[in-house]
């Protein structure tokens, strides 16, 4: 965990440590049966750290992240931001949804969507709100589309709006649920670079859930690997890759490839995995 301190760029990391303490989640079905989705996950995320969580499909990643976000209550354990318990609607944490297209409100323009994230919590004049909105839209390169509706934009642009909206709330912690999984490969690389730029500029704590090992290594300081359902932590790996990370060079560096090898082997080598066929 001391690693995170080594490659800090611009401003000092803001906020407090995020502690996820022995989280468990059991869903009870309507017919009385129950599904154990998460089994005792413990993680600490330092202020300003970029943590990635990878795990196989359906293992409980979204559930875990929603519990962290306070959108869902855990069956056991607790989440704390600094000294505060996270329950209900936590300030300072924002969730970036997996279905970005659906998470934008279609009756609001792009600018109204972005302003929705802070206008109702902070007393400010109309023009100040608009200025803040424009600042974030400019960061994601969509200032010219402020008065469009979200459904008039491409998938990649919609995701950039969702990112601008999440960051305009100026959260201490940004929780991302596979935010890049449904855009094309090139757009995804673009968005990776964008999110790193924004993270460098704003120094929020980032928690990214993904099933894409490359994405996790490229973006994160540490990668936590989850087991099959019920999810528990099977390993946490420090990436130790230098920053700033470069879209092409970083992905071709020996360290990157070694990490990739290690993580993939880890994810595949378990009952039901395909590691044995691959040999």
């Amino acid at each position: 965990m001391s690693v995170t301190a080594l490659h800090q760029v611009s401003p000092a990391p803001q906020g407090a440590r995020l502690s996820i303490d022995k989280i468990g989640k059991v869903f009870t079905g309507p017919s009385g049966g129950s599904v154990k989705a998460i089994d005792g996950v413990t993680l600490n995320v330092e202020p300003g750290e970029f943590l990635a969580i990878v795990g196989p499909s359906g293992c409980g990643k979204s559930t875990l992240l929603q519990v962290i976000a306070g959108l869902m209550s855990p069956s056991s354990g607790a989440v704390r931001l600094g000294a505060q318990d996270v329950t209900g609607e936590p300030a300072h944490m924002v969730y970036l949804f997996q279905q970005y297209g659906k998470s934008l409100l279609p009756w609001m323009s792009v600018a109204e969507n972005v302003m929705f994230s802070f206008r109702h919590r902070i007393v400010m004049t109309r023009s100040a709100a608009r200025a803040r909105c424009d600042e974030y839209l400019a960061m994601v390169g969509l200032l010219d589309f402020a008065d469009h509706y979200p459904w008039q934009l491409s998938g990649g642009m919609q995701q950039r709006v969702a990112i601008a909206r999440a960051l305009a709330a100026e959260p201490k912690v940004l929780l991302m649920d596979e935010p890049f999984s449904s855009v094309d490969a090139l757009t995804r690389l673009d968005l990776h670079a964008l999110i790193l730029d924004l993270w460098t500029a704003k120094r929020f704590t980032a928690v990214l859930v993904t099933h894409d090992v490359d994405e996790a290594i490229f973006l994160a300081d540490r990668v936590a690997v989850l087991t099959h359902r019920p999810a528990s932590i099977s390993e946490v790996i420090d990436t130790n890759l230098p920053r700033p990370r470069l879209s092409i060079e970083t992905r071709e560096s020996p360290n990157f490839l070694a990490l990739r090898h290690r993580l993939l082997a880890h994810l595949l080598a378990r009952p039901g995995g395909a590691a044995h066929d691959a040999r």
């Binding site: 609607e89 949804f97 998470s103 929705f116 994230s117 919590r121 709330a169």
Partner: peptide, 20 residues
């Protein structure tokens, strides 16, 4: 998901009703 959007941005119940 609209409910969750309102929630994650800490919008009050009344505002969520009115605007979402």
């Amino acid at each position: 998901i609209y409910d969750q959007v309102a929630k994650t941005f800490g919008v009050s119940r009344w505002t969520a009703l009115r605007r979402v």
